[in-house]
């Protein structure tokens, strides 16, 4: 009987250890921990070009993450990309005339949306659209423009 009990205890320990390891992978290694606070409000912004922006890319303000990209679609009327942003609920006092730009983290890093606060007295609400946007920098276009301006200069 004692032999059987200790087997059961060891098996219980084994299962607990395995689940503990999964829990550590969830909380410490992966980004599951910041899934729970995603119930915020949604705003949209239209960009001429989103470059390499992806769903779940970070949205930051002054470098602090305030939300994530929820969806990227093509607007059928303006042919711009319509980006839906999930904002964290605690950032509920962002001025309505805030502007959004797509930047790249580092030289080769992933792309993210950076918000620049405006000065409006009204705050962004669920479903609002950001009117001031700046598209992603496409390297080929920049090089093309540079070469063009060099040729002009000569």
């Amino acid at each position: 009987m004692l032999q059987k009990k200790s087997t059961e205890i060891l098996v219980g320990l084994f299962v607990a250890l395995g689940i503990g390891a999964l829990f550590m992978l969830a909380m410490k290694v992966s980004n599951l921990a910041d899934f729970s606070d995603e119930r915020g409000y949604q705003i949209t912004a239209q960009f001429q070009n989103t470059g390499g922006l992806k769903v779940r890319s970070p949205v930051t303000m002054a470098g602090v993450r305030v939300g994530r990209v929820a969806a990227i679609e093509l607007d059928p009327i303006s042919y711009n990309a319509k980006v839906t942003i999930n904002m964290h609920p605690q950032f509920d006092n962002i001025p309505a005339d805030t502007s959004a730009s797509i930047f790249t983290a580092g030289l080769l890093g992933e792309q993210y949306i950076s918000l620049d606060a405006g000065a409006d007295d009204f705050y962004l609400q669920d479903g609002d659209e950001l009117m001031l946007t700046q598209s992603a920098l496409v390297l080929e276009q920049v090089i093309g423009q540079f070469l063009y301006s060099v040729a002009e200069g000569n």
Binding site: I19, A21, L25
Partner: peptide, 16 residues
Amino acid sequence: FISMPLLAAMFSAIGV
């Protein structure tokens, strides 16, 4: 069938 995922999770966690 039950042991394998638990063992793999332990492997990854201790590896990290």
